[in-house]
C-alpha cells in the first residue's frame, strides 16, 4: 500500500524525519517545563534560549568561547596525534618496545585526565595551553592503542607480498603497514575527538580557563540561565559538526575497509 511517506523521495523524507525527531525533542523539553519536571524559574523556554544565543553571539562572548574551545581542542588533538600515532606504530612494529612500555601504558592510561587539572594549572596557568596539555594527555591513549592495534592487525600475507617484490623494511612500513593502518587510526581519531571535547569543557568548568565551560559557569553565577542553555545548545551543535566531519572522513578514507570485508563474506 503506497503511503504518504514512501511517495516522497528518500533524501527529502530523511530530512523531514530528522526535523520531526528534533521537533519532538523541543516539544518534550517544553512539555517537561509545562508539567513542572523542569522548573520554569530556572529553565528558560526555547524562545528565550534562542534569544540569548543571538545576543551572546552578537556581543561576542559566545564567539570567543567557541573560538577558545575549538582552538584548544584542535591543538590538543594535534599534539596527541603527533605523539600517539608514531609511538603506537613503533610499539605495534616492535615487540620489544611493546613489552618495555606496556606496563607503563597500563598504569597511566586509566588516569582520568581531568584529575590532572591542578597539576596543569601549576605547570601552565589557566590559559589555553593548560587545556591543550590535558586534552593531549586524554587523547594520546586511544590514538596510541588504535595505531598499535592497526599495525598488529596488518595481514602478514600483505607483508609477504611486499617482500616478494623485494621491498625492504622501511618500504614495507611506508607502502603496506601505514596504508593498512589508516582505518584504525581514523577510528581512533574520531574517538579521541569526542573525548577531547569532554576534557576541554571539563577543564574549563573546573579551572575557569576560557571557553564554553567557563562561559557557562560565569553566566550561571550572573543568573543568566538563558545563556547557560544557549551554551549547551552551542556545545551540542559543535559536537554534531565535529562528529559529522570525522564520520565522513572515516567513510571517505577508510571506505575500502568496510566494503572489502563485506565483499569477502
Amino acid at each position: 500500500m503506497p503511503s504518504l511517506l514512501t511517495d516522497i523521495p528518500r533524501p527529502v523524507r530523511r530530512t523531514l524525519q530528522a526535523c520531526a525527531g528534533l521537533a519532538t525533542l523541543v516539544l518534550l523539553f517544553e512539555g517537561m517545563r509545562a508539567v513542572g519536571l523542569l522548573p520554569t524559574t530556572s529553565v528558560p523556554s526555547t524562545g528565550e534560549i534562542l534569544g540569548a544565543l543571538r545576543t551572546s553571539v552578537v556581543d561576542g562572548d559566545m564567539v570567543s568561547a567557541i573560538g577558545y574551545t575549538v582552538l584548544a581542542w584542535l591543538l590538543g588533538l594535534l599534539v596527541a596525534t603527533a605523539i600517539g600515532i608514531p609511538s603506537g606504530i613503533a610499539v605495534g612494529l616492535s615487540r620489544w618496545a611493546d613489552r618495555a612500555t606496556r606496563s607503563a601504558v597500563e598504569i597511566l592510561r586509566p588516569v582520568p585526565a581531568v584529575a590532572l587539572v591542578p597539576v596543569a594549572i601549576v605547570l601552565f596557568g589557566i590559559e589555553v595551553p593548560m587545556q591543550v596539555f590535558l586534552i593531549a594527555i586524554a587523547c594520546v591513549w586511544p590514538l596510541l592503542l588504535g595505531a598499535r592495534g592497526g599495525v598488529r592487525a596488518v595481514d602478514p600475507l600483505q607483508v609477504d607480498t611486499a617482500r616478494s617484490f623485494g621491498l625492504g623494511q622501511l618500504a614495507i612500513i611506508r607502502r603496506v603497514v601505514l596504508p593498512a593502518t589508516v582505518p584504525a587510526m581514523v577510528t581512533a581519531l574520531r574517538l579521541s575527538a569526542s573525548l577531547g571535547v569532554v576534557v576541554a569543557v571539563g577543564a574549563q568548568l573546573i579551572s575557569g580557563s576560557p571557553g564554553l565551560g567557563s562561559l557557562l559557569v560565569s553566566s550561571q553565577n550572573a543568573g543568566k540561565n538563558d545563556v547557560v542553555w544557549a551554551c549547551l545548545l552551542v556545545t551540542g551543535a559543535l559536537g554534531v559538526v565535529i562528529n559529522l566531519l570525522l564520520a565522513s572522513a572515516e567513510r571517505g578514507i577508510a571506505g575500502w575497509q568496510a566494503l572489502s570485508t563485506e565483499g569477502r563474506r
Binding site: L22, S194, T235, G239
Partner: peptide, 10 residues
C-alpha cells in the same frame, strides 16, 4: 546525535 554531542561535563 544532538543530545550525545552535548559534552556531559557541560
Amino acid at each position: 546525535e544532538f543530545l550525545r554531542a552535548v559534552p556531559v561535563p557541560a
